[in-house]
């Protein structure tokens, strides 16, 4: 087992040049999640347009894995339907819980397949999941608000 399997070039690229970073208006829900054991933090906003994830913006601090994971997440979910994005979420969570035993589907996960190696390091899985958990939380809140306003 070598760190090379965790620090894939794709991950390092996203870490050095994160996509969609920064907090933007408008948004329907904002959440703040942190990893208390290591101090990684993220503030994440979701804007929905009907059933479409119109935008995901974020401000975060943390290790390369947590930063790259947030960047990869935004690429995968912005512009997709909530249902489609949810499938990517499910696939990513399953991959991170696989302890390196799962061959990821590149059609579903795109750049996120690079995180397969991270799943072999239990201490780092939380880093990779931080942005995804925040996104899930924000989507649930935004969807609930939307239902509340239309009923």
């Amino acid at each position: 087992m070598s760190a090379d399997s965790m620090y894939q070039e794709i991950i390092l690229d996203h870490y050095r040049n994160p996509h969609h970073k920064g907090l933007r208006e408008p948004y329907d829900a904002q959440v703040h999640h942190l990893n208390p054991t290591c101090g990684d933090e993220i503030t994440l906003r979701v804007a929905l347009d009907g059933d479409t994830v119109a935008d995901v913006s974020y401000d975060s601090e943390g290790c390369s894995i947590s930063q790259a994971s947030a960047s990869v997440l935004t690429d995968l979910v912005i512009g997709r339907s909530v249902t489609e994005a949810g499938k990517a979420y499910d696939a990513f969570v399953e991959l991170m819980q696989s302890k390196g035993q799962l061959e990821p589907d590149e059609d579903v996960l795109e750049d996120a397949v690079a995180f397969a190696g991270v799943s072999k390091y239990p201490a780092r899985v939380k880093c990779a999941l931080l942005a995804w958990m925040a996104w899930r939380d924000a989507v649930v809140q935004a969807s609930a608000d939307m239902e509340g306003s239309t009923s």
């Binding site: 070598s2 965790m6 290591c38 990684d40 943390g62 290790c63 390369s64 894995i65 780092r124």
Partner: peptide, 19 residues
């Protein structure tokens, strides 16, 4: 980030604390 420092040091057998 300290997490990345600790991970790469571990690759070389060096055990430090991060956090």
């Amino acid at each position: 980030h300290p997490h990345d420092v600790g991970q790469l040091l571990d690759e070389r057998g060096v055990a430090v604390r991060v956090g």
